[in-house]
């Protein structure tokens, strides 16, 4: 089979894609939901990068976050709970030419889909993965999530969450072959855009944990951080984020962090207050699964026939009138 090749669409210079070209259905998230900010940042990225919408694929699982593909104008895959990453891997393996984005929530990624998350880091396939982390189950109406703070009262933990939360950043940074780890917050859209842009340009599995507010179930969860800029630690570096002077005026708590420094990245990741925002780790030299296992050989009837005949030769018993010396049956 040949790859599905999109028809050439000629676009004149003035026919640039606009934000409207990336808008799908009207979002149905709650007013004030952090998902809206992520959507806006991704649409802006697509516009800035002038990505042909038909060459973008937005993959998701189940949960509030996973409605994301419906609201983009591109190819979308809104699958089943926890399995967005293996679906995205199959897409990327079959079609490395496509731009693959994944939206997953803290339940989808860090609970039901944890095995896939760990292994997706290891495969390091080129895709941009946004963990929409609101620290609670929203779509099923407020159950405890793996990232919920200890003591959080939810419908399944009416006397408070029993356990320490799982830290998605330290987990990701602990997996072999991790190549890009960042953290963004929905209330600083400028930085979220810059981080998603860096993630998109990184060749490999770009993992962004986005802390996002859930106005419906946890309206006050991030209020102290939203109100007090000193509780945010901006990670700045010439190879990382370079916040604008105006933003730096507000967010003065900054650390010059080289994204190549894995040890420091792990230290930063393990601190929850102040919240680190920026690029914790980036390594462009990590091997990518789709490169190690290329599928770009032409798959034509001739190549299939050639391969099949060579294999059948190994197992063939020559006919009675055939040259007996060519018998090559194997056990």
């Amino acid at each position: 089979m040949t790859d599905p090749i999109p028809q050439c669409v000629f676009r004149a210079e003035d026919e640039r894609y606009t934000l409207a070209d990336y808008q799908g259905e009207e979002p149905r998230w709650c007013t004030g939901c952090g998902d809206n900010a992520i959507l806006a940042a991704v649409q802006r990225l697509c516009r800035d990068e002038q990505l042909p919408p038909e060459r973008t694929v937005f993959v998701s699982g189940i949960g509030c976050s996973s409605r994301f593909p419906h609201y983009m104008n591109g190819y979308g895959f809104h699958g089943i709970h926890g399995r967005s990453l293996p679906v995205a891997e199959g897409i990327k393996m079959a079609r490395p030419d496509l731009h693959v984005f994944v939206s997953t929530g803290d339940g989808d990624c860090c609970s039901i889909g944890t095995a896939h998350w760990i292994h997706a880091i290891r495969y390091n396939m080129d895709m941009t993965v946004m963990l929409h982390d609101n620290r609670v189950y929203g779509l099923t109406k407020m159950q405890v999530s793996p990232t919920s703070p200890q003591g959080l009262q939810t419908k399944t933990t009416p006397r408070g969450a029993y356990l320490e939360p799982l830290n998605p950043l330290t987990v990701t940074l602990g997996v072999a072959n991790a190549s890009f780890v960042a953290q963004a917050v929905d209330w600083i859209p400028e930085l979220m855009h810059d981080i998603i842009e860096s993630a998109f340009h990184h060749k490999g599995f770009s993992f962004i944990r986005v802390l996002q507010r859930c106005p419906e179930f946890l309206p006050d969860m991030f209020e102290p951080w939203v109100q007090d800029p000193a509780k945010t630690l901006l990670l700045v570096h010439e190879d990382g984020l370079q916040p604008s002077p105006s933003l730096s005026k507000t967010y003065k708590n900054q650390e010059a962090h080289d994204p190549a420094d894995l040890t420091r990245a792990r230290e930063i990741a393990s601190v929850e207050d102040p919240i680190p925002v920026g690029i914790l780790y980036r390594n462009d030299d990590m091997p990518r699964y789709e490169e190690i296992r290329p599928t770009d050989r032409s798959y034509t009837p001739d190549t299939i026939k050639g391969a099949l005949e060579a294999e059948l030769d190994k197992f063939t018993i020559a006919p009675a009138n055939g040259g007996e010396d060519e018998d090559t049956a194997k056990p």
């Binding site: 293996p86 891997e89 199959g90 393996m93 079959a94």
Partner: peptide, 11 residues
């Protein structure tokens, strides 16, 4: 899921 992704993408 991987097989479904590849099929969805055309292979």
């Amino acid at each position: 899921a991987f097989a479904i992704g590849a099929s969805y993408a055309g292979k």
